[in-house]
């Protein structure tokens, strides 16, 4: 096993999967000649040619719309959206067609496309390079959503998304693209969608997170060491959701804090809280608390740290719950 950054693991997955499946192609803005603005697609054009790693016009709806037609012609496109908030023009195609087309054909045609993008804040970037748009995607029927938090999962979840017969959106936490090198399995590596990962085992309180917030939760668990035994559950995929793992952890600890960067209202944390209210109410010793971004546009980066869920805010929520 080699140690890799998360973005290098993404690149590794694309190399392995493109070599494995000749119908796979990567397309997006700057993915070819430049190898992607984060170098997630570096080396693909040189190795697989300009027809399988395609620099497209700057047109997110055109990228995803033409990917639908490519699927109809028998290709499996992996579309890169350059940034989270630049993906919004593609929502038209995603909502009106990607999530519906198979249904519209009575299940007779498959649309095994992948949309992957860097997402999330904390990187000192200009406006609209910082959003956490997972709720838009997971709210769209017909579409699956995966979010890795480790290099190995970045490779394995992307491979699973590529091999999945349904459309999958993969959100890659850009804050930890080059955060910490970790061991990543060589060659083919698949992490099935819908299996959460217990990032840390504990007995008193569960911190539920995904993406870059898993690291924040792990640090919060460190802070709380001695005061409480903290479990950290990394969801890995929002649809399919590993409800069993969520409910098992809630039954074990009886206390759940959900952490998301995205704005608070109708965020995925609210869905987790609703599931726990419906199915785990008698296991809970207190309310499900949310630590989230706020219902405002993502702020200028000089003040973004106050917007992002911090270790302190997560610790505060956990303490409040432990004292409830």
């Amino acid at each position: 096993m080699a140690e890799k950054f998360l973005v290098e693991a993404v690149n590794d997955a694309l190399h392995v999967e493109l070599a494995r499946d000749e119908t796979l192609m990567v397309m997006g803005e700057d993915v070819g000649r430049a190898g992607g603005v984060f170098r997630a697609t570096a080396g693909l054009r040189e190795r697989f040619g300009e027809n399988r790693c395609v620099d497209t016009p700057l047109a997110e709806a055109g990228i995803l719309g033409s990917a639908i037609g490519l699927c109809m012609a028998g290709w499996r496109p992996v579309c890169e959206m350059q940034y989270d908030a630049f993906s919004y023009p593609c929502l038209d195609q995603l909502i009106t067609h990607v999530g519906r087309y198979r249904w519209r054909t009575g299940g007779k045609m498959e649309f095994p496309l992948v949309v992957r993008m860097p997402y999330g804040g904390g990187v000192r970037a200009p406006e609209l390079h910082d959003d956490s748009p997972e709720a838009y995607y997971v709210h769209t029927p017909g579409v699956k959503v995966a979010i890795p938090s480790t290099p190995a999962d970045a490779k394995g979840l992307l491979a699973a998304a590529i091999r999945d017969p349904d459309p999958v959106v993969v959100l890659e936490p850009k804050l930890i693209y080059r955060g910490e090198k970790q061991e990543v399995p060589e060659g083919e590596h698949v992490v099935p969608l819908g299996q959460a990962r217990l990032a840390r085992e504990g007995t008193d309180v569960t911190l539920v997170a995904y993406g870059a917030m898993v690291r924040v939760c792990e640090r919060a668990a460190d802070e709380l060491e001695g005061a409480a035994s903290v479990e950290v559950l990394d969801l890995r995929s929002l649809r399919p959701l590993d409800e069993d793992a969520l409910l098992a952890s809630a039954a074990k600890t009886g206390r759940v804090v959900v952490v998301q960067e995205a704005p608070r209202t109708a965020g995925f944390g609210a869905e987790i809280a609703a599931i726990l209210a419906e199915k785990a109410i008698l296991d809970l010793h207190g309310p499900v608390l949310r630590v989230t971004g706020f219902d405002v546009p993502y702020p200028y980066w000089k003040i973004e740290d106050r917007y992002m869920p911090s270790v302190e805010r997560v610790v505060g929520a956990a303490r409040k719950l432990l004292e409830f």
């Binding site: 709806a61 055109g62 995803l64 719309g65 033409s66 990917a67 639908i68 037609g69 490519l70 699927c71 109809m72 012609a73 028998g74 290709w75 195609q93 067609h97």
Partner: peptide
């Protein structure tokens, strides 16, 4: 229209 473009391209 983008679907048809993608199909024709594919």
């Amino acid at each position: 229209v983008p679907h048809a473009a993608g199909l024709a391209w594919g």
